[in-house]
């Protein structure tokens, strides 16, 4: 075998390997994703990753657990429940828009709507419920929408995330777009989501431990001390983008919805434990 033939074979093998990585099924992606964290942090149970950074940082976890004796989001949760149960001006309410009256459904969101051919996040569904009943939409990142979403998440506590990618429509395309967004470097600092949350997970960025992406979506909306309020996942995406010098996108933009779809699929099988508090 000549050198030239060997070189050609190596190149062809590399191309096949790359094609394999890109065309991996979502289930294969999820297995590789979860396996990475399980190997990186042996001894931590899969479901414990639902506690985000506190699954891998014992010192911070002790402080967090002490703080959770009086969760800072408790008032917001009560307001969220009240808002959820308050009828619209037409007499209907949020429960009328969702399956199972909106109770214990968080684990199924975001879902792919095959008829509309787009990803529907829980926050989008809440606002669409409002507008279809003659109410104004709420701002997506914080405030009452985050409170209602937090209450709905709380009714799913312990239910396992179960994101489905339907064969019909462009569900797989949306998933792949979210996957590409997650792994693409962006911003002036040239960082991808994975550069912090996979390649450098567990390391420090200044005084903060970089959290694993496995389990990120289980506990949103979160109450961040920095915000002194509840915020949705798209509010967090916005901050992540800014931190790497990228121009953030609008909440509920296709790119953010697809990213949430991919990320939540990666956490399939983990229990919902939102809302939660973070530094």
């Amino acid at each position: 075998m000549t050198m030239r033939t060997r070189l050609s074979l190596i190149i062809i093998a590399c191309l096949f390997a790359c094609a394999g990585i890109v065309s991996a099924t979502p289930e294969e992606d999820k297995k590789a994703f979860q396996k990475f964290y399980m190997q990186k942090f042996p001894g931590i149970a899969l479901e414990d990753f639902a506690n985000g950074v506190y699954s891998i940082d014992q010192d911070a976890r002790e402080q967090w657990e002490a703080m959770n004796d009086f969760p800072p989001y408790e008032d917001d949760l009560e307001i969220g429940e009240e808002l959820f149960n308050t009828p619209f001006s037409n007499g209907k309410n949020y429960a009328s828009c969702f399956e199972n009256g909106g109770i214990n459904i968080r684990q199924n969101y975001p879902r792919f709507d095959t008829e509309r051919n787009t990803v529907i996040t829980l926050e989008l569904a809440i606002n669409e419920c409002r507008t279809s009943n003659g109410e104004d939409p709420l701002p997506y990142k914080k405030g009452d929408l985050a409170r209602i979403s937090a209450y709905m998440a709380s009714t799913s506590e312990g239910s396992l995330i179960n994101i489905i990618i339907p064969n019909k429509g462009d569900g797989l395309t949306a998933y792949q777009a979210g996957k590409q967004y997650y792994y693409s470097k962006r911003g002036q600092l040239n960082f991808s989501c994975s550069n912090c949350h996979i390649q450098n997970v567990g390391r420090k960025a200044r005084s903060e431990t970089l959290s694993p992406s496995l389990g990120h979506p289980t506990h949103f909306p979160v109450y961040r001390m920095k915000w002194a309020s509840l915020g949705t996942m798209h509010r967090r995406f916005d901050i992540c983008n800014k931190q790497v010098g990228a121009q953030p996108l609008a909440a509920q933009s296709d790119a953010y919805k697809n990213l949430e779809y991919f990320l939540t699929y990666m956490s399939n099988g983990l229990p919902v434990n939102g809302p939660a508090s973070r530094k």
Partner: peptide, 16 residues
Amino acid sequence: IQAEFEKNNWINNLPK
């Protein structure tokens, strides 16, 4: 340039 480069480079960030 970053956008063009990342069209192919993103797969290098997959977990290994």
